[in-house]
Computed example of a mutant assay.
Amino acid sequence: MTQTAAILAEASHFRAPTLVASSDSRFVRACLREPVDRTPVWFLRQAGRYMPEYMAVRRHHSLLDICRTPSIAAEVTITAAERLGVDAAIIFADLLLPFTPMGLDFEFVNGEGPVVHQPVRTREHIAALRTDRTDDLRYVAEAISTVSKHFASPRVDGDRLGIIGFCGAPFTLASYMIEGGSSRNYVETKKLMYGDRDAWRMLSDKLVTVLTAYAAQQVEAGADVIQVFDSWAGALSVEDYRDYVLPATTQLIQQIKTFGVPVIYFGVDTASLLPTMRETGADVLGLDWRVPLEEGWRLAGADVAVQGNLDPITLFAPQDVLRARVEGILAAAANRPGHIFNLGHGIVPGTPVDNVIAVAQWVRELSRRSGADRIGAPR
């Protein structure tokens, strides 16, 4: 039995191998394209530096301290979800956390973001990466367990808040490993990808193994949905995405789905990739703001739910402008089953909190279905 197969076998005791067709969470039902009474809403990076409560925590703890301390990560997650009045809470964590148990040290440097001090650029570097220490990541599962217990009871409207776990996609994490941090052109990543297909496959396989186990921990702890972030996939042509990225990403998403939860797959600047991204089998595709929602949904396909796609900088606009943009997205979605309102990327520092709260309120009010609409018209 391979290590990945062993992980799946071990995880199978806590989730059925097929997606559950109904849920007491409006958010989960929307992920599965089931009828809902209104459009669920949450925000990428909804716990972050724009929020005074979060900044109060940051005065005493670094980003990684928060991620690696379950009680604090849970507190930050819960506070944001309750303050904003959203339908889902995404656990406070960072994409790069799996690097440490794989034997790759990194840190966050002011003004630069994440920095990997010894980038992975040779076959020997890749061979040295470990896949047997994913238990070191269980602090994320502990935080999810706390959040899940906090939101276990339905709210006043009878809906239970959805709990979102997440991980990075193999390409995006590989690019951080190889570049040593963020990049504009991904030169080193593409050099390895093009120049040594076997090494690239070895790195992708190792990441899939680690990320599968990591996602399993999160689902076991109470995550209702797993979001897979492929933040930098938009740097790829369709041909390169299909040749070098689609196989490993599909494997990861299909393995997560065997845990019985829906999967959201999201990338930035990926409109050209959406028809290929749907081949991963993800239940929901995230849309960024560069593509109109109706066009993005057409590219994603009628049999896929979509999430998005307000430009996060629109949150700085006067409220009449902001409300009009919210109305436009909801009109484009037209109450079809399978739309989750969100941003096209994460909330940025300095965003007015009141505007974020207002968007959540407008979505709740404007998208509420009539009794007839709840049946769900054919797409």
Rank of each mutant, 00 (worst) to 15 (best):
A5G: 08
L19I: 00
D24A: 08
F27D: 08
R29W: 02
A30Q: 06
C31K: 00
C31Q: 00
L32M: 11
E34L: 14
P35N: 10
F43H: 14
R45A: 15
R45K: 06
A47R: 04
R49A: 13
M51D: 14
M51Q: 13
M51K: 07
S62M: 04
S62T: 15
D65I: 02
I66S: 12
C67G: 10
R68E: 14
R68N: 12
P70N: 15
P70C: 15
V76S: 11
V76P: 11
A80C: 06
A80V: 09
A81E: 11
A81G: 12
G85E: 04
A88I: 03
A88P: 02
I91R: 02
I91N: 04
F92P: 07
L96Q: 04
P98A: 05
D105C: 03
E107H: 14
E107Q: 09
N110M: 06
P119K: 08
R121L: 01
R123I: 02
R123S: 11
A127H: 05
A128E: 10
D132N: 13
R133Y: 06
R138H: 09
E142Y: 03
I144R: 00
K149Q: 13
H150F: 10
S153H: 07
P154D: 15
R155V: 01
V156L: 10
I164G: 05
F166W: 06
A169W: 01
L173T: 08
E179I: 10
G181F: 10
G195N: 04
R201Y: 02
R201Q: 13
L203I: 10
S204D: 07
L211H: 09
T212K: 05
T212V: 08
A213R: 03
Q217K: 06
V219T: 00
A221W: 07
D224Y: 00
V228H: 07
A233E: 04
L236H: 13
L236D: 12
Y241K: 02
P247T: 01
T250L: 09
L252K: 07
Q255R: 15
V261M: 01
V261I: 03
P262F: 04
F266M: 06
G267I: 06
V268Y: 09
M277S: 05
G281T: 04
L285K: 14
G286K: 13
L287H: 05
W289C: 06
R290P: 07
R290G: 14
V291L: 11
P292V: 00
E295Y: 01
G296K: 11
R298I: 05
D303F: 08
V304P: 00
V304S: 05
A305W: 02
I313R: 14
I313G: 09
L315N: 03
F316N: 03
A317H: 11
Q319S: 12
V321R: 13
R323G: 06
R323Y: 11
A324S: 13
A324P: 07
R325K: 15
R325Q: 15
G328N: 14
L330T: 05
L330E: 05
A331K: 13
A333K: 07
A334G: 10
N335F: 08
G338Q: 07
N342G: 12
N342C: 11
L343F: 08
L343R: 09
G344K: 11
G346W: 05
T351M: 09
N355R: 09
A360C: 11
V363I: 07
L366I: 10
R368Y: 01
A372S: 12
I375C: 02
A377L: 15
